[in-house]
Simulated assay, not measured.
Amino acid sequence: METTAESIKGIATHYGVNGKQLSTQYKEIFSDYRNWAQLNHATDYLLFPQNMGKSLSIDETCLSSGEVYTFLTNKEGRGGPGTMVAVIHGTKAETVIAVLEMICSLKRKEVEEITLDLSSSMMLIARTVFPKARITNDRFHVQKLYYDALDDLRITLRWMARDLENQEIKRCREQGIPYIPFRYANGDTRKQLLARAKFILTRHESKWTASQRWRADIIFEFYPELKNAYQLVMELTSIYNTKSHKDAARLNLAKWFDRVSKLAGNAFQTVIDTFINHYDTILNFFVNRQTNASAESFNAKVKAFRSQFRGVSDIPFFLFRLSRLCA
Results as ranks from 00 to 15, higher is better:
residue 274 T to W: 04
residue 259 R to D: 09
residue 94 E to N: 12
residue 267 A to P: 00
residue 327 A to S: 11
residue 10 G to V: 02
residue 104 C to E: 12
residue 6 E to C: 03
residue 68 V to N: 14
residue 205 E to Y: 02
residue 68 V to W: 04
residue 167 Q to D: 07
residue 203 R to Y: 06
residue 262 K to R: 14
residue 255 K to W: 01
residue 256 W to F: 12
residue 276 I to Y: 10
residue 302 V to M: 07
residue 142 V to Q: 07
residue 269 Q to P: 00
residue 11 I to D: 07
residue 21 Q to P: 01
residue 164 L to A: 14
residue 214 W to I: 10
residue 216 A to T: 06
residue 261 S to V: 06
residue 226 L to V: 02
residue 123 M to T: 14
residue 113 E to K: 04
residue 257 F to A: 10
residue 17 V to A: 08
residue 193 L to Y: 08
residue 47 L to K: 03
residue 59 D to Q: 13
residue 43 T to W: 05
residue 44 D to N: 14
residue 295 A to T: 07
residue 131 P to Q: 07
residue 317 F to R: 08
residue 265 G to E: 02
residue 29 I to A: 10
residue 200 I to T: 06
residue 78 R to P: 00
residue 115 T to E: 08
residue 186 N to M: 13
residue 29 I to H: 12
residue 143 Q to V: 14
residue 292 N to A: 03
residue 206 S to P: 06
residue 134 R to A: 15
residue 101 E to D: 13
residue 220 F to C: 00
residue 314 D to Y: 14
residue 97 I to R: 07
residue 229 A to I: 10
residue 139 R to P: 05
residue 148 D to F: 05
residue 30 F to S: 15
residue 39 L to A: 06
residue 285 F to A: 01
residue 151 D to H: 08
residue 236 L to H: 06
residue 207 K to T: 12
residue 199 F to M: 04
residue 253 L to H: 01
residue 239 I to S: 11
residue 10 G to A: 09
residue 209 T to V: 03
residue 266 N to Q: 15
residue 212 Q to F: 04
residue 292 N to W: 02
residue 184 Y to G: 02
residue 229 A to R: 12
residue 264 A to P: 03
residue 124 L to E: 15
residue 244 S to W: 03
residue 213 R to P: 00
residue 51 N to C: 05
residue 182 F to H: 15
residue 230 Y to G: 07
residue 210 A to W: 10
residue 125 I to P: 00
residue 219 I to W: 08
residue 257 F to H: 14
residue 117 D to T: 09
residue 209 T to A: 03
residue 257 F to C: 15
residue 256 W to C: 02
residue 162 R to K: 10
residue 235 E to G: 01
residue 320 F to Q: 02
residue 256 W to T: 03
residue 310 R to S: 14
residue 107 K to C: 05
residue 143 Q to C: 10
residue 278 H to P: 00
residue 147 Y to C: 06
residue 1 M to C: 07
residue 165 E to N: 11
residue 231 Q to L: 13
residue 156 T to F: 06
residue 63 L to D: 01
residue 264 A to R: 08
residue 325 L to K: 14
residue 257 F to Y: 11
residue 72 L to V: 15
residue 24 T to N: 15
residue 60 E to C: 07
residue 240 Y to T: 00
residue 223 Y to H: 15
residue 131 P to E: 11
residue 44 D to W: 03
residue 324 R to N: 08
residue 189 T to D: 15
residue 261 S to L: 06
residue 243 K to D: 12
residue 123 M to W: 13
residue 67 E to W: 09
residue 152 D to E: 13
residue 269 Q to R: 05
residue 159 W to P: 00
residue 33 Y to A: 02
residue 121 S to M: 11
residue 83 T to A: 07
residue 30 F to Q: 09
residue 237 T to G: 08
residue 36 W to I: 00
residue 48 F to N: 11
residue 194 L to E: 02
residue 122 M to I: 09
residue 246 K to G: 07
residue 222 F to R: 11
residue 25 Q to Y: 10
residue 174 E to F: 09
residue 153 L to M: 12
residue 196 R to C: 07
residue 123 M to R: 15
residue 110 E to Y: 09
